[in-house]
Design a protein around this nucleic acid. Structure first.
Length: 180
DNA sequence: GAATAGATCCGC
DNA sequence: CGGATCTATTCA
């Protein structure tokens, strides 16, 4: 038999300001198929007033999911070879998403640094775009660890809005102290 | 249609 | 620092 399912975070967790959800996701358990990992790095992307966001120019075929129901996955393809995993935030109708940039897999003691590597290792592609992770059984997030310390820095790899300190990283000391 | 920049990663 | 590699979006 399979291990007992952890309690998935409810929709109200995601239906909040993105700048609150992004740091709150640190230390949470991400379950995808037979993988379980701890989220170690996130970035917040909003809409208006965030020139680096896919939603900055309004609704497009790609960005429309950021305007929709919170708690859905948003997976996009970038640089011709990488997928990036996000989760939609804010109330339905308001744009927002959190990019998952780091994941620690305790079973392999493997730290995946970077959104592209993370998706490649787990096998996440655009086929996993738009999945409701509040109700899905093999793709969800659960409350697992309390991470007491994280750093806040500007976001990586963007050319606009470089000043916004919307990247959140679990500190190295918290990593070694709390991760198995 | 064509042009361009892109929420990345790896190797030199 | 440049190349890989393709696509979403913008511009004509």
């Amino acid at each position: 038999m399979r291990k007992n399912r952890l309690q998935a975070l409810p929709r109200r967790f995601y239906s909040r300001p993105t700048l609150e959800v992004a740091p709150d996701l640190l230390g949470k358990a991400l379950i995808f198929k037979n993988f379980t990992g701890y989220i170690t790095e996130t970035e917040a992307y909003i809409g208006q007033d965030d020139e680096a966001s896919h939603a900055a120019r309004g609704i497009t075929p790609r960005s429309k999911i950021m305007f929709g129901q919170p708690g859905l996955s948003y997976v996009y393809f970038i640089y011709g070879m990488y997928n990036c995993l996000n989760f939609v935030t804010e109330q339905d109708g308001a744009p927002g998403a959190v990019l998952i940039r780091g994941l620690y897999l305790p079973e392999m003691k493997l730290h995946l640094n970077g959104p592209g590597k993370l998706c490649r290792h787990l096998g996440i592609t655009r086929a996993h775009n738009g999945i409701d992770i509040v109700t899905a059984k093999d793709f969800y997030i659960a409350d697992k660890l309390h991470i007491p310390a994280f750093d806040t820095t500007p976001r990586i790899g963007i050319s606009k809005a470089k000043d916004k300190p919307w990247r959140y990283v679990v500190t190295n000391t918290a990593l070694t102290k709390f991760l198995p």
